[in-house]
Nucleic acid binder design. Structure first.
Lengths: 201, 201, 201, 201
DNA sequence: GATGAATGAGCGTTCATTCAT
DNA sequence: GATGAATGAACGCTCATTCAT
């Protein structure tokens, strides 16, 4: 039933939101599953209906935001490739700042030490790559990128750069302004990366 | 007897050094008391001979360094008050950088959340204030500061500023250079703070 | 309606078959309800439509086989009582071997520790006794056993013997050949048990 | 202190004895650490002072018996090698029977699936091999076995045979009489194995 | 002062079972 | 009848802390 499904979605959202709030505040290690579930009024076991392991909830934090970014870029029909990429990078780093250091730290940790993630459980990194692949594939189809564009490789490369920036930002404790870096990246690195495949018209 | 005292001092130092090394490397939460004691080859219980709680060991990290700083300033018989204060701040922040973020974070945590510290167990913050009071009191006695100098208040104020800087440095992940800040502080804030009490001669 | 009934019967069979396969392979304790239901493609809750507790599914394993045995004996119109009993015992132990130790162990466990079985949920033991009672009652009616035959008592006694053998076989890990034992039993114990009530003709 | 040590030894024994009793009765999977510790009146955590993991306690069951066997064989100064080996095998299998199937099953499981045993935690298998090596080495030194005897290899071979018998005995549910097998082994296999190294005098 | 055995609260995780849809 | 989201008790294990020796 649609209603059942919707209720479940809401429960999951309650858990993710509680996790986001508590982890951003106290750090991943200082928040227990019990804290999260009792904060949002569900049973402890319910957490494990939605996440195989405590760590996995972190992957879902910011999901709504980052999904919306993907949609937004796909909707930019009038814009050139360079602009799309710059906007994507900007929005991405904005999301990073929005989620905060503690959560980013956990994202990075999960990438560095993927442990035994169940197959059908994509890390945030994989989610991000997949979304960018979508964007690039779409650009190929509407003729903004050439048919030879190595979509997968480029997606990995750009996302890696963004994760690198996120990491630096975390390690720096959040001082430097990612927007400045993004500016430089979009104008230099990224453009150089994509230049060979961008079609002029 | 002296020998026993000395042996005890050495045991404590072994523990503190082990704690410093391990915490700096892995973070306070990821180091257990067992890790610390087995690393330096003493029994678990010995830890609690010297520290009431696991957190307390952090207060002693850097103790030797910060003590030496105090001694050094007191020995600067020829220098003016402004120079002493500037030097103190510089050395202080140098010690902060030397101990590293993970340890500073724990210092700050202990100040923010003093919990149920046993009365006769001064936090690092209190230790630092007391030392600065010593320095200021000495300056009053040698006539560098006026007899009306609110020693305690000023000590708290300056240490607070330094702790503020330490906090910023931690939150920034260690990027910005505290020395620059110290320069400005010593020249402006600190001087303004102490100006009314500094005696000209 | 008939169709619905049939569909339900099939669902139940799917569950029992999955349970049989998995339990025989891994043992009752190492198979979860989730394992069973996801193995046969039904929802977790469906299991509880058919069984009040996880343990109860074991009672239904081999049901088809043991039912068929009962039918077969009832159909042996031409045979004498001794032959019927011997055939029943043989077939019974054959079914036991067929289901395997792990499942038998669980049958025995359920008999030994009936816990809070819901009233209308006969254990396999009760099912077996009831079936044998049917066979004996039929024999009384066709004149093979005297009217004084204590049907219920005898059924319990014989089934107990067979369960004893099953238990021995389980405890022995399945080495000795139950058929040999059955041979001796049918010829000695069983015959002596039933002798007073078997009518000669 | 000796007293402390002794008290600890007793605590460990209490735990092992409780584990032996409960596991032999209900099987490893149906006994929790809580069951064991509360049965013998110690705190849950105490269990983990002595054993890294729940499984490890099984390795210590029967320890006293098997140690005594080793001592006994070493004390058989007057006996020939063949007799020593036969006695060892007999006593070993007697110990196996004494501990019961459920515990043997767990021993075998731990050998088959050593998981991540900590280095200094020998499995029962390793303990048994080491003890037999001792016995053989002693025999070499007193001149019963030649200097060329491949002590380690032979120890492994004989223990493997005994474990093979234990496994068969478990799988058979305990029916066949290990003593008979041992008889044959000691007379045939074992003697053939050791024959080339036994010195006649 | 030093020890290390003992403690017990707390954590992450599993899973049989319930029940509204 | 079938579903699957929700539950909560129970488990294995960790670890800061206490205390008799």
């Amino acid at each position: 039933m649609n209603k059942r499904r919707q209720a479940a979605e809401e429960t999951k959202k309650k858990i993710v939101d509680a996790a986001e709030k508590l982890i951003a505040e106290k750090g991943f290690d200082n928040v227990s599953v019990d804290d999260i579930t009792s904060f949002c009024g569900v049973a402890k076991g319910t957490f494990y209906v939605y996440f195989k392991r405590k760590e996995d909830v972190v992957q879902d934090i910011g999901y709504a935001y980052f999904s919306a970014v993907g949609e937004e870029i796909l909707a930019m029909k009038e814009s050139g490739m360079a602009e799309k990429l710059r906007r994507y990078s900007e929005k991405f780093m904005h999301g990073v700042q929005r989620c905060g250091i503690r959560i980013c730290r956990q994202w990075i940790k999960n990438v560095l030490d993927p442990a035994d993630l169940p197959e059908n459980y994509p890390s945030k990194y994989e989610f991000d790559v997949a979304m960018l692949e979508n964007i690039l594939q779409d650009a190929v189809e509407v003729g903004q990128l050439s048919g030879e564009t190595p979509v997968e490789t480029l997606a990995h490369l750009l996302i890696s750069q963004l994760y690198g920036m996120m990491t630096c930002w975390c390690m720096s404790g959040g001082t430097f302004e990612p927007k400045d870096w993004v500016g430089r990246f979009a104008d230099e690195q990224t453009e150089r990366l994509f230049a060979p495949y961008i079609k002029k018209n």
